[in-house]
Design a binder for these strands. Structure first.
Lengths: 115, 115
DNA sequence: GCACTTCATCGACGAATGTCAATACAATCT
DNA sequence: AGATTGTATTGACATTCGTCGATGAAGTGC
């Protein structure tokens, strides 16, 4: 997979949109799909409360998952645009993309604009 | 399936919550999972723009899906608490549960309370 | 160079998902 | 009662998903 399709968080459209293209519908579903797993919800929650970026080794414990599985989930969240990845030496630090999460909240908001 | 587990939309907790129980995490993931399919996103969008309740036969066309498949998706959305079902004679009318969608928007909102 | 650590990818497995045709159920009408 | 219409359920199928062990890849320090 050398392709890097644009993150769903950048293509999604609000559920209240008057018309929704197929691409927007797919992107919106993909965005929700990224959060459709309990472990990924937990990851986002951990990153939301931690104001510091977190590395993979800090997540395997709280999640009770193997390291490959944690990397797998992180990759999905990054692909969706919800997480940012940064390398510091040997470590890979992940942090929340607050802009993407703002957009997610707006997608689910049935009333008007983005304050 | 005679069990009727409480809808995810009533058990979910915001992603910004300081601590998230396993049950809350699972419910939150289940809520997102209900919207992780493009056809279900389309259904919610159709119901969001239509201020009238909609029956199954009105959805098979726009979705290009068979009637059993549409019923299957509707059932999942109702189970998640996002849709309400009402029988009128032979027809089954579905409508958006605006409270549940409000809650969904709040789940994704990283900043404070529920205005 | 080599050893070591951290993370990503690969391969395989069982489990869950979306889909449809066929069938059953429910409500209405004659 | 029987016929008809709209909806729900069943059973089967291919596909996708989450998980792990094993292996690679990248970086650090000796």
């Amino acid at each position: 997979m050398t392709e890097t399709p644009t993150p769903a968080a950048q293509c999604c459209a609000p559920l209240r949109a008057p018309t929704l293209s197929d691409a927007e519908t797919a992107a919106t579903a993909a965005l929700f799909k990224a959060l459709s797993d309990p472990h990924r919800v937990r990851i986002v929650n951990l990153l939301a409360v931690a104001d510091e970026a977190v590395c993979v080794c800090d997540l395997t414990g709280p999640l009770s998952l193997s390291q490959p599985t944690v990397s797998h989930h992180l990759k999905k969240l990054v692909a969706a645009g919800l997480l940012d990845r940064e390398r510091r030496g040997t470590w890979a630090y992940y942090s929340l993309n607050r802009t993407a999460l703002r957009r997610l909240a707006d997608v689910a908001d049935l009333r008007g604009g983005t304050p």
